[in-house]
Amino acid sequence: MAILNITYAGLSADFPLESGLNLTDGDVRRIAVEVVRAGGVRGMTFAQLSDNAFDHYVVDRFTGPAGERRIYLRPKVPFGGRRSA
């Protein structure tokens, strides 16, 4: 059991995964497309979500305070790169 948190289009919500322990990043992205498209993620309704909607998203994996596995699918945050500081 794992919790998949998806952040997309400024929205963020959890989705429980029955078998989330051995998923590859690609698996996570594909599952996210399916569940968001199907309306299974609370507050997210994007029925026409494209297959590659999460191709450039990052998959983070952490263990929560209660020992639960948490997977975060989120946009990248490089915030530019035009200039180095």
């Binding site: 400024g10 989120r74 946009p75 945050v77 490089p78 915030f79």
Partner: peptide
């Protein structure tokens, strides 16, 4: 913050990997 301004991240270095 993401380039499209919809997402931000605050993370301590011990759990951080630069995107």
């Amino acid at each position: 913050i993401s380039g499209d301004g919809t997402f931000g991240l605050v993370r301590w270095d011990e759990r951080f990997v630069a995107d």
